[in-house]
C-alpha cells in the first residue's frame, strides 16, 4: 500500500508560531496506538462529545472498502488528528443536489488540542487541516470541492463560522440523536482554500 505524506502547518500555542506537520492519506497502526495510549490517557477538563469514539473499530470497519478513506495528522512525534471520509454520498444543497461529494464521517483532533489546555504541547488548526484535506480529496475525485458532514453540537460554530459551510439544520434521519447537517459548495470550498481558514 502506498501512503502519501504531505507537508502542512499547525499553530503551536506555546511558541505562538506555525510549525511543520505531516498529513497522511491513510491512518497507520502507529496512529491508532497513539489514540489508544495518548488520547485515551489524556483527561481534558471539559466533557468531549466524541470521547467514546473508538478509532481502531472505525478503521477496521472501513478496511478494504473503496468508498472510504482515512487521514491522520502528525506533529511533534504524536498523532494530532484523525479523519474518515466517504466518497459515495451526494449533495443536498439545491445547487448541488444529487451531485457527489466527500462526506466527512468522523473527524477528531487530539484532546489536548482543545482551547484552554496547558501543560503540554498543543496545536491549533488540526480541524482546519483535515477539512482542507477533505476538500482537496473532493477536488481530486472530480467533485469540485463539495463536502458534507453531520456536526456534533460542540463543533457547529466551527463548521458554520470558521469553515463557512451552509447549515441545513437538524437532520432527524441521521440517528437517534439528530445532528445538524452542514454542506460546502464549490464556491465555499474555493473561499475556504483561498483564505487559508
Amino acid at each position: 500500500m502506498t501512503v502519501t505524506q504531505s507537508k502542512v502547518f499547525l499553530h503551536d500555542r506555546a511558541a505562538n508560531q506555525l510549525v511543520e506537520a505531516t498529513l497522511y492519506d491513510t491512518v497507520l497502526e502507529r496512529h491508532l496506538q497513539d489514540f489508544e495510549r495518548a488520547w485515551k490517557g489524556f483527561s481534558p477538563t471539559a466533557q468531549l462529545e466524541h470521547e467514546h469514539w473508538d478509532w481502531r473499530k472505525k478503521v477496521v470497519a472501513i478496511s478494504g472498502q473503496l468508498g472510504y478513506q482515512s487521514f491522520a495528522v502528525e506533529c511533534g512525534g504524536e498523532t494530532q488528528g484523525l479523519m474518515v471520509i466517504n466518497t459515495i454520498k451526494r449533495g443536498r444543497l439545491p445547487q448541488q443536489a444529487g451531485q457527489h461529494l466527500v462526506y466527512v464521517e468522523y473527524v477528531q483532533a487530539a484532546p489536548w488540542n482543545r482551547p484552554g489546555i496547558s501543560g503540554r504541547a498543543s496545536y491549533r488548526g488540526v480541524g482546519t487541516v483535515l477539512i482542507a484535506a477533505a476538500i482537496q480529496q473532493s477536488v481530486d475525485e472530480g467533485y469540485r470541492g463539495r463536502i458534507g458532514l453531520h456536526s456534533l453540537p460542540q463543533a457547529d460554530a466551527f463548521y458554520r463560522d470558521a469553515c463557512g459551510m451552509t447549515d441545513l439544520g437538524s437532520d432527524s434521519s441521521y440517528s437517534r440523536v439528530p445532528l445538524r447537517y452542514f454542506e460546502m459548495s464549490e464556491d465555499q470550498a474555493g473561499v475556504f482554500l483561498k483564505q487559508g481558514r
Binding site: Q65, L66, G67, T87, I88, Q99, H100, E141, G142, R144
Partner: peptide
C-alpha cells in the same frame, strides 16, 4: 449528468458496487 470524467464515474460505480455487495 454528474459532471465527472469517465474514469471518475467508473471508480464511483466500483465503490457503489462494492458497498452494495458488502
Amino acid at each position: 449528468k454528474k459532471g465527472l470524467s469517465k474514469t471518475a464515474l467508473m471508480r464511483q460505480a466500483l465503490r457503489l458496487y462494492q458497498a452494495v455487495e458488502t
